[in-house]
Amino acid sequence: MRYLPALIVDAVLVLIFAVIGRASHQEDPGGFLLTAWPFLVALLVGHALAALMGSGPRKPWSLLWGVTVWVVTVAGGMLLRIIAGDTAQLAFIIVATVVLGVFLVGWRALAGTLRRRQSTKETDAAASDSAEDGAAPEQRSSTD
């Protein structure tokens, strides 16, 4: 179930994409599910594919996982739109690719940056504590 939080964040972002898109074209935002459903189905496929990749990403919040989900979501969503009889004009493909890329990969990049900053702060704090104790971090016992 470690995949569920990332899937939920991604699904919410796909829904936001659909609402913004419909509102920007003065269409009824309430019909956002009509726009979103192909991308939501493709999103599920993208997550499943990322999870099944043997040598691929292991963590659903990793950038590689996000790129996999993004590519499958855009390509699969466009394909499902066409199969369902809707359009996929070039301008829409470009906008969907960019926006979904920013959404699906962007939050993972932001989360990774925040995790690295937190890790750096914790490492710096441990090093500072060690310096105050007069011992280098590698000289401290594991019980400290």
Rank of each mutant, 00 (worst) to 15 (best):
M1R: 15
R2F: 10
R2I: 13
P5R: 07
L7C: 00
I8Y: 00
I8G: 05
I8C: 10
V9G: 03
A11W: 02
V12K: 07
V14Y: 05
L15T: 07
A18W: 01
A18D: 00
G21N: 10
A23K: 03
S24K: 14
H25V: 14
Q26I: 07
P29Y: 01
G30M: 05
L33D: 03
L34K: 04
T35Q: 03
F39W: 03
L40I: 07
L43T: 04
V45S: 02
G46Y: 03
A48T: 09
G56F: 04
R58S: 12
R58E: 11
P60S: 02
W61N: 13
S62A: 04
S62W: 02
S62M: 01
L63A: 12
L63Y: 09
G66H: 10
V69F: 03
V71P: 02
R81T: 02
G85T: 03
A88D: 07
Q89C: 00
A91S: 15
I94P: 04
V95I: 15
A96E: 05
A96M: 09
A96R: 14
V99H: 04
L100P: 09
V102N: 11
V102S: 07
F103C: 08
G106L: 08
G106K: 09
A109N: 05
L110W: 06
L110H: 01
A111M: 07
T113D: 02
R116P: 04
Q118R: 14
S119D: 08
S119K: 08
T120M: 14
K121L: 14
E122K: 13
E122A: 15
T123W: 12
A126M: 13
A126F: 15
S128W: 11
D129C: 12
A131P: 07
G134I: 13
A135E: 14
Q139L: 12
Q139I: 12
S141Y: 06
S142Y: 05
T143P: 00
D144Y: 09
D144C: 09
